[in-house]
Computed example of a mutant assay.
Amino acid sequence: MFGCWGATEVTVVSHFLKWINTARVSERAAAASALAQAYVGKNLPFEDRCAAEAALTLLLEDPSAKVRMAIAEALSMSRHAPPQILAALASDQPDIASLVLARSPLFTDDDLIDRVASSVGTVQRIVAGRPYVSMAVSAAIAELGEAEACVALLANSGADIATLSFRRVAERFGHVAAVREALVVDPRLPSDCRHMLLVKVGEVLRQSPLVAASIGPVRAERVMRDACVKASLTLIDGIRFDEHAALVEHLRLRGDLTSAFIVRVVAHGKIDFFGSVLVGLTKQHRKRVTALLAGGRDIALAALFRAAGLPASIDGVVLCALKVWREVASGKRIAGAQEVSWLMLNELGDRPADTNLTALLKSIHLEALRGNAREHALAIAAA
């Protein structure tokens, strides 16, 4: 009786409303689905559409979730569905609400943001997985969503995510392994967020009871700090040149642009990034900084270092390293961090001992020795 709706819908709907009180659940669900499909088919006269809409509205009160699910399935992808019915279905139990929220094109950004703000868990995750998620909705999920919703958002190639939203997710859930993994594999992730995740991992390890019991809190702090510095150097190699400025600013705000870090950067030959550091700290034009690093005299470079706030105590070793890397760049010399750090150590010579700088350069040199030896051993094993 209710599988097809013809030209007498008002009469049919009238019979339908009397019939539903005695019909079985499966019959009510089938009839509700047929009525909803007829409604969105756009072939009903105005009077019949009003009657069908009234019947669908009444069916929202059906005690069986199967009936409401049938309506949701029929209306969820239509632009002609009654908005008040969709709104009610979106507030229904999770499996029904999720179906509508995942599909319906009628929900505006404001509607979706309200759902994110007033819901938890499954509903947030469904919104995050919609075929298209605007930057505004992504921002709401990044700010208010639970961890699983943020994972779903990051996995959604149809989500438009702002740089600031990436940062908020990293700040809020960088300590959660699933979120961290989703962030790291996302090619859109800004470089400063990648560094933030490195720090989060270090903090998780430092706070681990096992680590604290094994090596003590003081040593755990030092190990974490050293590991983050080394990871930061590796990170520099993996980011685009146009991301240098953002990473420099992030490191500056965190207080990580220390003289020790800069000595490491130069010793490892990351001169382009060193140039970005100097540009960020001095606000001088990049062309001038690049020209000075490529061939500037020591006096001019020392003045540049003072403008950047670098201590004079590191001038000698930094200038020594720059000269070696210039020769490497011009093809006049073959050298790596191992040779450069040794020459930097020799540059200290008989000057009054700076024990911290000496210890730092020895550490860099020993790390380079170990790294080269490991690569050599692996090459032998692979031969």
Rank of each mutant, 00 (worst) to 15 (best):
T122W: 06
S138V: 06
L144Y: 08
I141V: 13
V127R: 04
A142T: 14
V123N: 03
P131S: 13
V127T: 11
A136M: 12
V137L: 05
I126Q: 02
R130G: 10
G121A: 15
S138F: 08
Y132T: 15
G145F: 05
L144P: 02
V120G: 08
S134F: 04
R125K: 14
A142E: 13
A139C: 12
M135T: 14
V123K: 03
V127N: 10
A152V: 02
A140R: 01
V133G: 10
Y132P: 03
I126T: 12
E146C: 14
V120E: 09
C150V: 04
V127A: 12
V133E: 11
A136H: 15
S138T: 09
C150H: 00
V120L: 07
V133L: 05
E148M: 06
E143G: 05
A149D: 10
Q124E: 09
M135P: 09
E146Q: 14
E146N: 15
I126G: 02
E148F: 03
S134E: 03
V123D: 05
L144D: 06
V123Q: 07
A149K: 10
A139R: 13
C150N: 05
P131R: 08
E146M: 12
P131V: 09
M135V: 15
V137I: 07
G121R: 11
A139E: 14
Q124W: 01
A136S: 14
V127S: 13
